[in-house]
Nucleic acid binder design. Structure first.
Lengths: 337, 337
DNA sequence: TTCGGGTATCGAAGCGCTTCGACAACCTAT
DNA sequence: ATAGGTTGTCGAAGCGCTTCGATACCCGAA
């Protein structure tokens, strides 16, 4: 392992000079700088991360806590994780991957050991048990997702309330009166995951305003669960002509079932999905959808965290405005016979 | 931040004693140990990661390089990543997430800076450009996936060759004579990703042995691409009665198309999938499949790497034996008319 | 010519931990 | 009673880096 001291000797300067060349915190003559840089290259020097962290009390690492569960939105999680890792690198940070498994202890461990300079939490629940700790240790952090009380926290999320509203609006505009939301698995609602409830809220209040009748049914992913759910919906509200799906693994089963029952999309039933664009464009019907901007969320989270770490930046809630893309799965409501 | 020295003072012992209590590398009297442990608890002490790394030249971090691309097997990647993170923790390691983006430079950076003690590489290509570096720096590492030349490397993977063989065997046993493989996207083959080629090899050689006619067609995910691919297959080999799919995002479109064309599964066509169990059981037909043991792969990779880091363990290739689960998508070949 | 004020560099003091050698205290076998 | 071996603890050296004065030099203004 090549050390700073060896580089210094090779370049004929002192160790501190090399350090200043590296950090740029003091001015260095062009001549010296070049000599040092040459030595660094020739010796293949890489600063030792541990020594750096110790001396500067900065690890240049961001911790990312991802949920252990894989019952929902796996590709979205992955995309966010990759976006976080990628944009962290552009700011000179590496990413430490923590799973939810350790729970709050992970927060304590990371904050206490100085392993990471800050953390990004995904899949934050409304009343997340990690939040008190985060506030107490005032660990620089950014949440992806919205807890019930955001005081003193920085959060990034899609504006799911507006998303819900946007979906009904689109359907209402086409004359749909009876709309159903096929949601996430019941467990997701029981867990009080914010995004699911906020979508529902937005949907409900806008439906009321627009005079649309709304039925909400959670649904496990998969074909069988979907069959049951769909049957119930059509049984209870036979006139349902608009369906909003917020569950990736329910999308394709839904389309298959509708087809099987002879209900044409969008002639008989309009479908709006809340899902990544990739899912919407690859489905058997190109779906009108509100995209989940995973990359953007990851990037925002990193940027806010970095800002905090650099002393800029403040606590705030960033809600990304939803965008609805019209594709082939929605159209005018069928005329009531 | 509480330091070792403060704990020592609080417990009335020297710093080194506290260190030995923590590491267990020298015997400590029960009495002293308890006093120290109490102080640690009372002060809420956490060892500083940087200082530790510096003094011991061990970071207790494993780097995990995941592919940047998300054109395939995203849930599998995620599951592996989570399994790696989880089992790393049980061995006292944390996981640093690197994306493929930096390419070989990441290997250099991590190895050079002592950021991580070892690394796990996912999505290794047959002739991966990171391998020469890995060998040169003799960085402790484990690959998930198999390169062309495994000399001096430790690799963990599903035995895709056997997987391919297993799939045809199952179909042949049921009397299927014309079998098609619907594979990954063409880009995957062009990239010479090992698993795809090995599956094909296994499939081909076993087909030859069994006298089965095999047709291989790569396929992008999604409904439209699938429609084209399927049409071509049935056009070229109208008698095809067995289909093997190795592409998660082609599974549901395939089933939908078969249904639409009035071909019953498994009465007219048998389908075997190579995919995670979750996909197989959630599909609109419960699929006979060979599971991709993501968790097991992640766990194996960590265990081998940890063994290496502890001086045990050697270079070897671990191929996990495939298991085929019979579900509702395969049956006897229809009698030729 | 002298002095203030940059600019470029150096030396030394840590950062918080691990680890090695030393040493005291005790026990056992002679 | 003494040599030899254990066991438990301590002190100090260092891991490789950052950073804070201090210093030496050079320039232009007085």
């Amino acid at each position: 392992m090549v050390t700073l001291a060896e580089v210094a000797q090779h370049a004929g300067v002192s160790a501190s000079t090399v350090s200043y060349v590296l950090s740029g915190k003091r001015s260095i003559s062009a001549n010296t700088r070049q000599r040092v840089e040459r030595s660094i290259r020739e010796l293949g020097y890489h600063p030792n991360a541990g020594a750096r962290a110790l001396a500067s009390s900065k690890s240049n690492i961001i911790a990312l806590m991802i949920p252990l569960r894989t019952d929902m939105y796996v590709p979205v999680m992955m995309e966010i994780a990759i976006a976080v890792a990628t944009s962290a690198r552009t700011h000179g940070y590496d990413v430490l991957l923590l799973t939810g498994e350790e729970g709050p202890d992970a927060v304590r461990r990371v904050a206490g050991s100085g392993l990471a300079d800050g953390m990004i939490l995904m899949d934050v629940e409304l009343d997340d048990e990690r939040l008190p700790l985060l506030r107490a240790t005032d660990q620089p952090s950014v949440l992806i997702g919205l807890p019930a009380d955001t005081a003193g926290l920085t959060c990034v999320d899609l504006d799911f309330h507006a998303t819900g509203a946007l979906c009904v609006e689109h359907l209402a505009k086409q004359g749909h009166q009876d709309v159903a939301l096929i949601g996430e698995a019941p467990a997701v609602y029981e867990r009080h995951t914010g995004f699911a409830e906020r979508t529902l809220d937005g949907l409900r209040s806008r439906s009321r305003e627009l005079g649309v009748r709304l039925l909400h049914r959670p649904c496990e992913g998969g074909y069988d669960a979907m069959a049951v759910t769909l049957a119930r919906i059509l049984d209870e509200r036979p006139g349902t002509s608009g369906i909003i799906v917020q569950n990736e693994s329910a999308v394709e089963p839904l389309l298959a079932l509708l087809r099987q029952q002879g209900r044409a999309v969008p002639e008989d039933v309009s479908v709006v999905a809340i899902c990544p664009d990739q899912v919407a464009t690859q489905a058997s019907v190109r779906l009108t959808s509100v995209a989940i901007p995973a990359q953007e969320m990851g990037r925002h989270a990193v940027e806010h965290l970095v800002a905090k770490l650099e002393g800029r930046g403040s606590d705030e809630v960033v809600l990304i405005a939803p965008e609805l893309t019209v594709r082939a799965s929605t159209g005018p409501a069928p005329s009531r016979s």
